[in-house]
């Protein structure tokens, strides 16, 4: 498969997903279709239907950048991000999906990258903590709020907390405290920064200028 073909298939997939929009999720269609895609595993991969155990070349869309790398089917997304792309902001606290330190956004949704095979993420937009900052260095409102409210101590869980917070704010810009708590309920912080994390997410949400009527 040529590079241009790969590119095309990946982007068209994204376009398809985007075009569907969020509203279709809640639409009461009898047909029942319209679930927003994550992890379809049909990303920027070679056309062969069986990838050998020794691996294949796959293209990833990480933080808006296309990166091609050779992976084995057993390689996890966390491993690719950390060891191949040097994106070590994504941490690993347990390796079993129980602590949330490895949270990244896959097609906009928070997932545990330690329990996600890299091959499943090929061609699907991946967003990591390193992708939040604007090119000119401006911090994302969440990052600013985390600093402002001191929503960190040792900082090892912080990337994951911020990514979970972002997954929430992207669909619900002005969440209440219960929604915030729920959004980071898969993120462990042993230092116990939760109260400041709640404040920070709340503040970042209200910075977006949308107020929730409650």
């Amino acid at each position: 498969m040529s590079d241009s073909h790969r590119k095309k298939s990946g982007i068209s997939r994204r376009t398809f997903i985007k075009g569907l929009g969020l509203s279709s999720l809640g639409a009461a269609t009898l047909s029942g279709e319209g679930l927003k895609g994550t992890l379809r595993g049909t990303g920027l991969l070679p056309e062969e239907r069986i990838v050998p155990a020794d691996g294949t070349e796959a293209t990833f869309l990480v933080n808006g950048r296309k990166r091609k790398v050779r992976i084995e089917p057993r390689t996890t997304l966390a491993e690719v991000l950390r060891h191949r792309f040097g994106l070590t902001g994504t941490k690993l606290g347990c390796g079993r999906g129980a602590c949330g330190a490895c949270t990244v956004l896959l097609d906009g949704k928070a997932v545990s990258s330690c329990m996600t095979l890299a091959i499943d993420a090929a061609g699907v937009p991946v967003e990591t903590i390193e992708g939040l900052q604007a090119k000119d260095g401006t911090l994302h409102p969440l990052q600013e709020a985390f600093i402002e409210h001191d929503a960190m101590q040792c900082g090892f869980c912080t990337s994951g907390m911020i990514m979970s917070g972002k997954a929430l704010l992207d669909i619900n810009p002005a969440p209440d405290e219960q929604e915030i708590r729920e959004s980071v309920s898969g993120n462990l912080c042993r230092c116990g920064t939760y109260p400041h994390v709640f404040e920070a997410i709340q503040a970042a949400g209200s910075k977006s200028g949308i107020r929730k009527t409650k």
Partner: peptide, 8 residues
Amino acid sequence: ATPQIRNI
């Protein structure tokens, strides 16, 4: 489970 796991 957790939000992260429910997404997958």
